Amino acid sequence: MLTIHAGADGAALVVDGGTIAAVGPLDALRASRPGARVRSWPGTLRPGLTHEGALPPAPSPRERVHALLSRGVTAVAALPDDPALRSALDRSGLLPARRAPEPAPGARADFAVVDGSGACLATLVGGRLLYRRA
């Protein structure tokens, strides 16, 4: 299913499965894909962050990964040695990469939505909404 993710500034991304199909102004993308679902966000779309160093402390591996997602992280520079933590990272789909990919046509749909203060509102990894601030 095609989904257009639109920021409050009018910038938008078309996500087809786990890939970005197009980038551009919301009006143009909506006109070129009339059947697409539109998800409007009260912030701006931006590339995901790359986390370097140890993962944040938390009671469980899942919660440690969730802490990254809540910051807009879509890639992890160094994978941990802990098998339980690596498993949680694998399940999330976070990339083991030195740099998170830029949102561009043909790229994996990894991006974040941030508000005016820079706080993360949502994180999408491989086209999946993995974090959304309540």
Rank of each mutant, 00 (worst) to 15 (best):
G126Y: 01
P59D: 02
L89C: 13
L79K: 13
A77L: 04
P47N: 01
D82A: 15
V14M: 02
A84L: 15
V113Y: 00
H51M: 02
L85C: 09
A75L: 15
V23F: 12
A104V: 06
P103F: 10
A78G: 00
A104E: 07
R64Q: 13
A36F: 11
A100N: 02
C120A: 15
H5G: 11
L13K: 08
G35M: 07
T123I: 05
V65E: 10
M1S: 14
L49Y: 06
H5C: 14
G127N: 02
A107E: 13
W41S: 03
A88D: 12
V14F: 01
R128E: 08
R133I: 13
A119D: 14
G17V: 03
R108D: 04
R91Q: 09
P25C: 14
R91I: 12
D115S: 02
L69E: 13
L130K: 10
A104I: 03
P56I: 14
P25K: 12
L95C: 03
C120F: 11
V15H: 10
W41E: 07
L121F: 08
E102L: 14
P59N: 02
A54I: 02
A84Y: 14
G10R: 15
S87C: 02
A22S: 15
T19V: 10
P57N: 01
G24S: 06
E63L: 11
L68A: 06
P101C: 08
A31E: 03
G17R: 12
P42C: 10
I4R: 07
P105V: 07
D110T: 05
L29R: 06
L13C: 07
L124G: 01
A84P: 06
S32M: 10
M1E: 13
L13T: 06
E102H: 13
L124I: 08
A122Y: 10
R64T: 07
A109V: 02
A122M: 07
A84G: 13
G10D: 13
V113M: 00
A100S: 06
T74F: 14
P83V: 01
G72W: 00
P61V: 06
R86G: 11
L55E: 14
S40C: 05
E102C: 13
L129V: 12
A6L: 13
A122F: 09
A107H: 09
S40T: 09
T3H: 09
A6S: 15
G10C: 12
L55R: 12
A78V: 00
S92Q: 12
R33W: 15
A88S: 11
R91K: 14
A107R: 05
L2M: 07
V38H: 00
R128M: 03
G106L: 09
A6H: 15
P83C: 04
H51K: 01
V38Y: 00
D90A: 09
